[in-house]
Design a protein around this nucleic acid. Structure first.
Length: 266
DNA sequence: ATGGTCGACTCTCGA
């Protein structure tokens, strides 16, 4: 099973890139973030033509998450089940990959998140981000066992370790690297997740995000590893490959994030 | 980076 996550920064602007990506990498499951489109305008047909079933939870202009799957899939939930802001529903989409005759084992839930960015560590949005990660941890606690198979993927807007960001000594006040953001992410991950990229590549300095606003970010290596594929141990043990695909960046109209992929032998 | 560039959208906001 090949799963990919990609913050596409508008699914409508990016659809040619998404189609190229699917044709080349052939992911079984593709989770995207920042679709920036309401559900009635979601371009599902382009993905359905490639053989994908599509689930999406969007809103106007901002946020928006979607999952495309070639394996049987059913939508489990959108947003939290704890109340909260309406925008949460376009940041969190849970689906379940269903068993097949070839894969008769238990279903695999997939939690696709677009974690709030936080704007600035002095902004209320940063507190909302920290709370959001705490609510996500509580969601894991309520709904699943860390001994079972579970995937949590998406744009987490957190670089977990110093090696996950360019010049970490200068990023202490960035909402994606502030100690409080890393602690909140770590607390959610400590529920029982393995960071698949870091597990397979303990020393690799590779990034999934280069800021659009820095014209020379890519050539200078000024990037961030803020997109992640997290798996419970039961699944991480079956992860044979995990890599960042920079190829869409070389084509016309890249997004500022690049896809992250992981292959599981099941 | 009190900067820069995108994308959606009504002009300014979010990243």
């Amino acid at each position: 099973m090949l799963i990919a996550t990609w913050n596409v920064n508008s699914i409508r602007a990016r659809m040619p890139r998404v189609v190229d990506f699917c044709e080349k990498q052939q992911p079984d499951v593709l989770c995207v973030q920042e679709t920036k489109v309401i559900d009635e305008d979601f371009p599902a047909a382009d993905l359905q033509q490639l053989g994908y079933d599509v689930a999406f939870a969007g809103q106007k202009s901002y946020n928006g998450v979607a999952v495309a799957s070639r394996l049987p899939m059913k939508e489990i939930a959108r947003g939290f089940d704890d109340g909260g802001e309406p925008a949460d529903a376009s940041r969190l989409l849970i689906v379940q990959i269903q068993p097949t005759p070839e894969n008769p084992r238990t279903p695999v839930p997939v939690v696709n998140t677009y974690v709030p960015q936080g704007r600035d560590v002095d902004d209320d949005a940063f507190r909302y981000k920290l709370d959001w990660l705490q609510r996500l941890r509580a969601l894991f606690d309520r709904n699943w066992s860390s001994r079972k198979r579970l995937l949590w993927v998406g744009d987490m807007n957190v670089a977990p370790q110093p090696m996950d960001v360019w010049e970490p000594e200068r990023r202490g006040n960035h909402p994606d690297y502030h100690p409080d953001a890393r602690a909140a992410f770590a607390h959610a991950a400590e529920w029982g997740f393995v960071d698949c990229f870091r597990e397979l590549h303990p020393d690799a300095v590779e990034y999934t995000f280069y800021d659009y606003r820095d014209r020379h970010a890519l050539e200078n290596g000024n990037g961030w590893r803020v997109d992640h594929i997290m798996a419970t141990r039961a699944l991480a043990s079956l992860c044979t490959e995990c890599w960042i695909d920079l190829e869409p960046r070389t084509l016309e109209k890249p997004s500022d994030h690049t896809p992250l992929l992981a292959r599981f032998e099941f």
